[in-house]
């Protein structure tokens, strides 16, 4: 039998505080805890109740990340009264904040159990803030939004840059994983399902509609969790694309999705042309 996750390194002991707290509050402050259980060495998402909270993983996964915010959104939608606790990384919290601003989750009814990402993961992700606002477990690693790839591509002549992106988009197998895994993609009707825009059965998807529809949709919404890039079977540098879009929004509106609950999303404000000039 293959045991998953054996390569997990020095971050092995980082959980107990989260697990302790989860066991403490389940059945009291909260009804359920969205966390992980271990099966065959792999951390898999699970919603615990007071009955099975003892099976919650003692150690939190160092590397594996799942779209936790989407799970919270669906759980709250199905049962608006549910009192829920959830283990969150920095990116999960950003996604929840952005979803809350869009009326998709209720943070008031949510207890966040904060987990700081280890240095290894934080570095690999190039995350702006690899820890949530309140950290229960783990050491805060320094956050530094990695725009290296964005800058590198912008240094190329326009023709070469276009060639680069088209060659990457051409490898797309249209699995829709980038959309499916995205915590901010909650639309019931999606432009990517419109046969006029994305013809069923056509591979690669017509250039560059598929990827640009997503990129435009990510403007002012993408929290840079990077789950899309992790889910891409052909390794299209989606995070770089969405970081560029995010940079465009930030430079004009000083808005970074998920950074704070107080900042108003430019998508939520009806302004005039002067406001953006």
């Amino acid at each position: 039998m293959v045991v998953l996750g054996q390569s997990r390194s020095e971050e092995k002991d980082i959980v107990s505080k989260i697990t302790d707290k989860a066991r403490d509050i389940t059945g009291k402050e909260v009804d359920r805890v969205l966390a992980y259980r271990l099966e065959e060495g792999s951390h898999i998402p699970h919603l615990f109740s007071a009955q099975d909270i003892e099976q919650m993983a003692e150690e939190y996964p160092a590397q594996e990340r799942y779209p936790v915010a989407s799970m919270v959104r669906r759980l709250q939608a199905a049962d608006p009264g549910i009192r829920l606790a959830v283990v969150v990384r920095g990116c999960d919290e950003r996604a929840l904040i952005e979803l809350a601003k869009q009326g998709q989750v209720d943070l008031e009814r949510l207890v966040l159990l904060g987990l700081a990402c280890g240095e290894e993961l934080a570095g690999a992700c190039g995350c702006s803030q690899p820890y949530p606002s309140e950290v229960l477990e783990g050491e805060k690693a320094e956050g530094d939004l990695d725009l290296g790839m964005v800058e590198k591509l912008e240094g190329l002549p326009p023709g070469e840059r276009l060639d680069y992106w088209l060659s990457r988009f051409n490898t797309c197998v249209k699995c829709f994983g980038c959309r499916n895994v995205c915590p901010l993609c909650y639309c019931k009707e999606c432009a990517l399902d419109e046969p006029e825009l994305v013809e069923p059965g056509e591979l690669p998807p017509r250039l560059p509609v598929f990827h640009l529809v997503r990129a435009v949709d990510m403007a002012g919404r993408c929290v840079d969790c990077g789950l899309c890039e992790e889910a891409c079977p052909v390794g299209i540098p989606l995070r770089t694309l969405y970081r560029k879009v995010g940079e465009a929004v930030e430079s004009r509106f000083d808005y970074r999705p998920g950074r704070s609950l107080e900042e108003e999303s430019p998508l939520a404000v009806l302004g005039t042309e002067e406001d953006v000039s």
Partner: peptide, 8 residues
């Protein structure tokens, strides 16, 4: 939906 689990 007060139960949610994943099965590998």
């Amino acid at each position: 939906m007060t139960d949610y689990r994943t099965v590998p």
